[in-house]
Write a protein that binds this DNA or RNA. Structure first.
Length: 452
DNA sequence: TCTGGGGTCCTAGGACCC
DNA sequence: TCTGGGGTCCTAGGACCC
């Protein structure tokens, strides 16, 4: 918590719906609902006109239609939303270099990093007011709500207090007074499950929460969650505004209007999703070691399976093969297998454990292995390395190791090892001499293993 | 025919290593 | 002969957020 109200939170009002109304004048002043329009769709954003009929985010589109049949129901145009978001973030960066986007329509701005004469309430209020007008100007009329406070938590609470098109400042020193009468659900991280647990413990307001000892919160909610709630209930929040966070996973999933029951169709879906995920990985210059699938059964139970490769991949074939293998593993399972054939409503593929490794880093640190070291490496090393994959190259031979090299074509591949000393003992790693190849060393079926 | 899609973070248990 | 504890990695699931 800072001495000044120098954390700004900006939230675009009914963002997706507002973009639609901006771009299509006939929708202005009318209820607009953006979201899935299929049989299993949900509402992403409802315009304020639609909210008057009780339409809310995350509500099923079916219910939204029954509440407000005359609304315009639209699927999202994410290209337009991304463009508007880009304009907003650029406007925010004109004020301060420290801008942390939370999503397309929300961001924190650290005014302490801005070029201002001081951080007094009047000064930052003026900045915030001009910023809202600048955002409207940059986006051709989108309105936003802004909160200013001494921490991220309070700034976000504040931006919610006067929606839409509002500006609320929490003067330093008044934070706890503002929070105490509020419901615990204003605290980020308190969703339905946590709120219910707290309610059973007699806690419904922040003031109630403040009276619960730390040990009790930890035993109720776990170490991390209990600890953070104990702090936030007292308005204690020192989280910095952090621009540019690295993505940790990439995934694609889809819910189908009617359940899938043919495993071959599911495999085809996973293959296509794997290609989408791999394409997005490549576009962002990233690759990841853990491939996961997600399966939601007809009764809404959700199961996931994952497998971790010894080196990162962004290869659509590798991701697809592993995804299908994970599905096959599920289908063979005694419990899930039966249900799988009973119908699957959602399928998804993800890659996590992202590392946007740079080839130079790998090969520059490489040293020629000692002869006896090479002899002493019967097991596949637990490698953390890989290299970009070039189609059109094949592999006939791998020295010093067991694994698969993905490719198609002809050639000879040499796997190089190095052993480095670390405080934890020797660390083995490997790489390929050809930087355009990739070695993969997970468990491979014997009859499928070219090196067995 | 209730219940999206894209993420993040946490927990808990088991394997494995020192 | 019996008994260890800590750290890291991996997996599965759950809660939460926009």
């Amino acid at each position: 918590m800072r001495a000044h109200a120098s954390v700004l939170h900006l939230d675009l009002d009914a963002f997706f719906a507002s973009v639609e109304q901006r771009d299509k004048p006939s929708l202005r002043g009318k209820p607009v609902v953006v979201g899935g329009v299929g049989g299993r769709g949900v509402v992403a954003t409802a315009s304020y006109e639609a909210r008057r009929y009780g339409v809310r985010s995350a509500m099923s589109t079916r219910e939204a239609r029954s509440r407000c049949p005359h609304a315009a129901f639209l699927t999202g145009r994410f290209g337009a939303y991304r463009e508007a978001s880009r304009q907003v973030m650029a406007a925010l960066r004109e004020v301060s270099p420290l801008v942390e986007p939370l999503s397309l329509d929300e961001a924190f701005v650290d005014l302490a990093a801005a070029d201002l004469p001081d951080l007094e309430v009047d000064t930052v209020t003026g900045v915030a007011d001009r910023l809202r007008h600048r955002v409207a100007e940059a986006t051709d009329g989108l309105t936003s709500s802004v909160g200013l406070a001494s921490s991220k938590f309070l700034a976000k609470v504040a931006s919610d207090l006067d929606k839409p098109d509002g500006l609320v400042v929490v003067p330093p020193g008044t934070e706890t007074e503002l929070l105490r009468p509020m419901a615990v659900t204003v605290i980020p991280g308190v969703g339905p499950a946590t709120a219910e647990r707290l309610r059973r413990a007699g806690v419904t307001t922040v003031a109630d929460l403040e009276r619960v000892p730390l040990e009790e919160l930890v035993s109720l909610l776990g170490k991390a969650h209990g600890g953070s709630l104990h702090l936030l209930a007292r308005a204690r929040d020192d989280r910095p505004v952090v621009p540019e966070r690295e993505a940790k996973s990439v995934s694609v999933e889809a819910t189908y209007d009617s359940d899938l029951s043919d495993v071959r169709v599911m495999e085809a879906v996973l293959t296509r999703q794997a290609a989408d995920v791999a394409r997005r990985l490549r576009e962002s210059g990233a690759s990841g070691r853990t491939v996961s699938i997600k399966v939601r059964l007809h009764d809404f139970t959700t199961v996931s399976r994952s497998s971790t490769l010894s080196s990162p991949t962004d290869d659509p074939g590798v991701v697809a093969r592993l995804a299908r293998a994970l599905l096959a593993e599920l289908a063979a399972g005694p419990d899930v297998g039966v249900q799988l054939r009973g119908g699957v409503r959602l399928l998804g593929v993800g890659v996590s454990g992202l590392a946007d490794w740079v080839q130079e880093d790998l090969f520059s640190s490489l040293e020629e292995p000692e002869d006896d070291e090479a002899e002493d490496l019967p097991e596949p090393p637990r490698a953390r390395q890989g290299s970009a994959f070039a189609p059109g190259v094949d592999v006939e031979h791998v020295e010093h190791g067991r694994g698969w090299v993905w490719g198609a074509g002809r050639g000879v591949v040499t796997v190089r090892f190095e052993t480095r000393e670390s405080p934890a003992g020797p660390v083995r790693s490997f790489s390929l001499e050809d930087p355009d190849l990739r070695l993969w060393t997970p468990e491979v079926p014997e009859d499928d293993d070219p090196l067995a």
